[in-house]
């Protein structure tokens, strides 16, 4: 879950390289804070405190500055005591999705995976969270799973989602 890499560091060489590649896109090094946090969270499913220090060192910032940015997105960045599951499901509760049964869908998804909203399944596989708007109103009501947006209207859709997830055949990496 939050195990360190073989080099004893959370921010791996590959991540550092990726950040260096991204650097020219931004006006300052500090602007790489969010991409760095994403890379770490994607890999470890949380942001270990040591990783904050490493990010700060890499970006020549103070740890307090990274924490400042990170906690502003409090619903987004996970701490080691509440890591994300392998799959993160966002259930949209924007107005269009809610009108099409989004609230009900959230409860159904939670029930199906046996978690509370915001919680992670005991096997660490799935985290289900409400999301503000996924920007995919044409698919309402919809969910987002590791980067892939799926329309879920019927129980059959939910079954299919469940099976794809069990098979690991969902999300950006599966496409």
């Amino acid at each position: 879950m939050s195990e360190q890499t073989s080099t004893g560091r959370y921010l791996t060489e590959a991540m550092r390289q990726k950040l260096n590649e991204l650097a020219p896109r931004y006006p300052t090094k500090q602007a790489l804070t969010l991409p760095a946090l994403h890379l770490v969270q994607d890999r470890y499913r949380c942001i270990p405190p040591e990783a904050i220090v490493e990010i700060a060192e890499f970006l020549e910032l103070a740890p307090a500055q990274v924490l400042d940015t990170m906690t502003f997105y409090g619903s987004f960045f996970r701490t080691p005591d509440a890591p994300l599951g392998q799959f993160r499901i966002w259930v949209c509760r924007s107005l269009p999705c809610s009108l099409c049964g989004g609230e009900e869908l959230l409860h159904k998804v939670c029930h199906r995976f046996g978690v509370e909203p915001g919680g992670t399944s005991q096997d660490g596989k799935v985290t289900v969270e409400p999301a503000e708007c996924l920007g995919a109103c044409e698919l309402a009501p919809c969910v987002w799973v590791n980067g892939e947006v799926v329309k879920v209207t019927t129980d059959a859709d939910l079954d299919q989602l469940y099976e794809r997830l069990q098979a690991g055949a969902i999300g950006e990496s599966a496409q």
Partner: peptide
Amino acid sequence: CDEVQCNDVIGRSGKGHGTQIAFDLD
């Protein structure tokens, strides 16, 4: 802390009503 002493110990943590100043990693 940041500009005068350049020690960068204090930041904020959280947002909205829950925001408070934080030392290092809170």
